[in-house]
Design a protein around this nucleic acid. Structure first.
Length: 295
DNA sequence: CAAGGCTCCTGATAGC
DNA sequence: TGCTATCAGGAGCCTT
C-alpha cells in the first residue's frame, strides 16, 4: 500500500528514467484508470502525444509530471495497488496493465532507450489524469490537488500551523493524521507506526494535544517515513520503477501494523487490532492507553 | 462548514 | 473440493 515513502521511490525512478522524454503514442487499456480525466480516455491520449515530460514532483501520496512549455501536468495516484513501471517495449504486458505511454526518443541515459512507461493497477483505485496547474504554483502542482497539505518531509511544512489545526479540531489523532488536508502522505500503516512510537492511542482527541506532544509525534512520523524511504531506496537500481506492496521494505520490521497478538517490542504485552473506519488499528494496550470514555 | 460514513475494485484467504 | 464471505484501504463524495 503505497504511502509517502513508496511514492517518493517511484518519483525518483521516474526522474531517472522518463524525465525530459518526449511522449509518443498513449494507450488506455482500462477506462477506470483515467476516470479523473473528465474528457475521457481518447482526450487523455491525444493531449499527451508530442509533449515533453519535465521533472517529476510529489506532494504526499500524489505525484505529477509537469509537461514542458505548458501549464498542464499529468497527475498520478497509485491508490492501493498502482505501479508505474519502466519496461522494455518488448516485455509482455502485465495482467493488470491499464495505461501504456510510449516515447519518441530516449532519455539522456542511453540505458533507458527502447523503454516505455506502464501504469499497472490490480484494484484500480489509482489512475492518471491531465490537469491545469494551480494558479499560484511554480512547480506545476495540478489544480485538483491544491487542497492537499504539504507533507512532513517537505521543508515548507508548517509544524505550528499543524498543531493549531489539531487544537481547533474536534476529532481524534489518527483521523487527523489520515486527513490529507492537514498533513499529507500518512496512510494507515505509518499512522499506526508513528502512534506506537509516540505511545499515543489512536482515539486520543486532538484538542488536548500540547505543543511538545505534537512535536514528538511529528518527529516520529518523519523518522518512520525516512527509515522506510532509506530501505525502499536501496532496492531501486534496475530498470524498474517499483511500488511493491508484498516485498521490498514491507518485510522490514514494523512495530505495530499487522502485529496482532504478537508481543509489543517495548513492553511485551500482546498487541491488539481494532476495527476502525472500515480498516484496522494496531496498538499496544499498555504503551498506548486509551483516553477516558473510549473503549 | 466540519466531521464521519459510504463506496469504488480485485485477489488472497478463511470458513463452511 | 468448491463455493461464499471477509478483508485490504485512499480519497472523492455524500449526509448529518
Amino acid at each position: 500500500m503505497p504511502e509517502l515513502p513508496e511514492v517518493e521511490v517511484v518519483r525518483r525512478g521516474l526522474e531517472r528514467w522518463v524525465a525530459h522524454r518526449a511522449i509518443g503514442d498513449v494507450e488506455v487499456l482500462h477506462p477506470r484508470a483515467v476516470r479523473r480525466h473528465v474528457a475521457g480516455a481518447d482526450d487523455f491520449a491525444q493531449r499527451l502525444k508530442g509533449q515533453r515530460i519535465g521533472v517529476p514532483m510529489r506532494r504526499g501520496k500524489y505525484l505529477w509530471l509537469p509537461l514542458e512549455d505548458t501549464h498542464t501536468s499529468v497527475l498520478a495516484h497509485l491508490g492501493m495497488s498502482g505501479q508505474l513501471l519502466v519496461q522494455p517495449q518488448q516485455a509482455p504486458d502485465e495482467k493488470h496493465l491499464r495505461i501504456r505511454v510510449r516515447f519518441t526518443d530516449g532519455p539522456d541515459d542511453p540505458a533507458a532507450a527502447g523503454t516505455e512507461l506502464r501504469f499497472v493497477d490490480q484494484r484500480t483505485f489509482g489512475g492518471l489524469s491531465l490537469h491545469e496547474c494551480a494558479a499560484d504554483s511554480t512547480d506545476g502542482l495540478p489544480d485538483v490537488i491544491a487542497h492537499i497539505a504539504r507533507d512532513p518531509l517537505d521543508e515548507l511544512f508548517d509544524d505550528a500551523a499543524f498543531h493549531d489545526a489539531l487544537r481547533r479540531s474536534r476529532t481524534t489523532i489518527k483521523r487527523a493524521l489520515l486527513n490529507q488536508s492537514l498533513i499529507s502522505g500518512v496512510g494507515n500503516i505509518y499512522a499506526d507506526e508513528a502512534l506506537w512510537r509516540a505511545k499515543v492511542h489512536y482515539e486520543r482527541p486532538t484538542a488536548g494535544f500540547t505543543r511538545p506532544r505534537t512535536a514528538e509525534l511529528l518527529g516520529h512520523v518523519r523518522n518512520v517515513m525516512a527509515e522506510a524511504l532509506a530501505v525502499g531506496g536501496t532496492s531501486f537500481d534496475s530498470l524498474y520503477v517499483n511500488v511493491n506492496g508484498e516485498s521490498g521494505y514491507f518485510d522490514r520490521s514494523l512495530d505495530a501494523y499487522g502485529r496482532e497478538d504478537e508481543p509489543c517490542r517495548r513492553c511485551g504485552t500482546p498487541m491488539r487490532r481494532r476495527p476502525w473506519m472500515n480498516r484496522s488499528s494496531y496498538f499496544c494496550p499498555r504503551c498506548q492507553r486509551p483516553p477516558r470514555a473510549s473503549s
